[in-house]
Amino acid sequence: MRRFAYDFERPLIELEEKLDAIKRTESAGKEDIAAQIAYLEKQIEKLRVRTYSNLTPWQKVQIARHPDRPRTSDYIEAIFTDFIELHGDRTFRDDLAIIGGFARLDGAKVMVIGHQKGRNTKENLLRQFGMPHPEGYRKALRLMHLANKYRLPLITFVDTPGAYPGIEAEERGQAIAIAQNLAELSRLEVPVIVANIGEGGSGGALAIGFGDVMIMLENSYYSVITPEGCVSILWNGEGNPEQAASLLGLTADRLKELGIIDAIVKEPLGGAHHAPALVARDLKKELVKALKDLIKLNPKELVEKRYARLSQIGYYIENPVKAPVEK
């Protein structure tokens, strides 16, 4: 079976496949073949560095969407212990595009909520590619309330292309469900730590995606609109998503410069799926560090600080120089 590859990775993947083929042949022991293997390995290493060292914003978006990228459930398993999953919004159904429940982070009791993509097509159909319906957001809201009631710090994992675009989602109040989560997140009296592990697609991501400390994986993105959506609106489909991705300032680097996020977790060359355990370990370090700082604050301080943080996000000019207006 051919391995999944984006266009920009294709030359590298092809070289790797060639190497695999040579290794598989019976004659692999012979000296001239061994030399060829050594040569190819060197070439592959060089090409890997060249391919992944200076990723464009669009390439990062693609890596953020990679089908092999670790999912929320992978991080829950790697980072936390004693996870107890909770289900349902108590109104309509259990939306599998969002998961959550109790867990322990380094022994500390917390609440975890995250978008959940599938690992294959079948699971993705069940989980709707991590795109929640209103009931998914309402499940998240329920868990936020539980976190607040039992004083459990909230840790969220963001990984969605966006809220589910569908008739039923609109009928059941997609907009209102997101809005209510935004209001609730702002008033939670427990620490809220956000980790963007892949796709931060617009309002559907934001609905569980802002808090006291915001962490992003190096190749994740967070954007007001998908690059494709931006192209279809601003260029009437005539532009390309590469351009749009660059314009939107959606990478972890750029968002740290803009003061939207606090920390970036490095990924191995090629993306988190090349060394999931390593990324999970580093992400855990950041989460533990953030939690340690935040639990020093009392509930009122936490809420005030979160409000102040949101308050100062904006770029505008006040009192521009102008001729005095006669009253």
């Binding site: 809005a179 935004l182 209001a183 997140l185 702002s186 008033r187 617009s202 309002g203 934001l206 802002f210 967070y222 954007s223 007001v224 609109i225 931006c230 609106i233 601003l234 314009l247 939107l248 300032g249 959606l250 968002l255 803009l258 939207i260 979160r306 409000y307 949101l310 308050s311 996000i313 904006g314 770029y315």
Partner: peptide, 17 residues
């Protein structure tokens, strides 16, 4: 407003707060 990128998206959280 997409021309202000994530800063615009965060206004949703800011106004809701």
């Amino acid at each position: 407003r997409m021309q202000e990128g994530m800063i615009s998206l965060m206004q949703m959280a800011k106004t809701s707060a």
